[in-house]
Simulated scan of single mutants.
Amino acid sequence: MQKLIIDASKKSISINTKELFTYKDLFVILAYRDLRVRYAQTFLGLLWAVIQPLFTLLIFVLVFGKAIKIDTGGVPYPIFALSGLSAWTYFAFVMNQAGNSIVGAQNMIQKIYFPRLIIPLSKAVVGLVDFIVTLLFMAGLMLWYQFAPSHNLFFLPLFILLTIIAALGIGIWLSALTIRYRDFQHIVPFMVQIGLYATPIAYPASIVPSEYQLLYHINPMAGVVEGFRWSITGGSSLEAVAYVSFGVAIVLFISSLFYFRKVERVMADIV
Rank of each mutant, 00 (worst) to 15 (best):
V133W: 05
A31K: 09
L117A: 08
D34V: 06
L117K: 02
Y145E: 07
L135T: 06
T72F: 04
N107D: 11
G45N: 03
L47D: 08
V75H: 09
F131N: 01
P149G: 02
I59Q: 09
W144Q: 02
G45T: 12
P120T: 05
A40P: 02
A31C: 12
I29N: 07
G84H: 01
R116A: 03
V103G: 13
A92D: 10
F27K: 04
H151Y: 12
V103F: 09
A67H: 06
Q52K: 14
G65A: 04
L85H: 04
S83L: 11
V63C: 08
Q110L: 15
L26K: 03
P76E: 02
T22G: 15
W88S: 00
R33G: 07
F55V: 12
F154Y: 14
V125K: 04
I29Y: 13
K69R: 11
A139P: 11
K66A: 15
F60T: 06
L57K: 08
D25E: 12
T42Y: 02
I132H: 00
K123Y: 08
I109W: 07
L128K: 09
F154Q: 09
I70L: 03
L46R: 07
V94D: 07
S122P: 03
L26Y: 11
A49V: 09
Y113M: 03
A98C: 04
Q146L: 12
F27L: 06
G65C: 03
D25Q: 14
V133D: 01
L135H: 07
G99Q: 02
D34N: 12
S150C: 06
K24P: 04
T134Y: 08
P78S: 02
R33V: 10
A98D: 01
A81Y: 00
L117F: 04
P120D: 00
I119L: 12
G74K: 10
L82P: 14
N96C: 05
S101C: 05
M95C: 15
A124E: 00
A105C: 13
K69S: 15
L26T: 03
V50P: 09
F114T: 09
A87S: 08
M142D: 07
D34E: 13
D71L: 04
P115N: 02
Y145K: 08
T89E: 07
P76L: 00
A98R: 11
L46Y: 11
L30T: 07
V63L: 11
A92K: 03
Q52P: 15
D130T: 09
Q41W: 12
P78C: 04
Q52S: 09
P78K: 05
I70G: 00
I118K: 00
F154V: 11
D130H: 14
K24H: 14
I70K: 00
A40T: 08
V129N: 01
R38A: 12
V129T: 10
G73L: 05
I51C: 05
P115G: 05
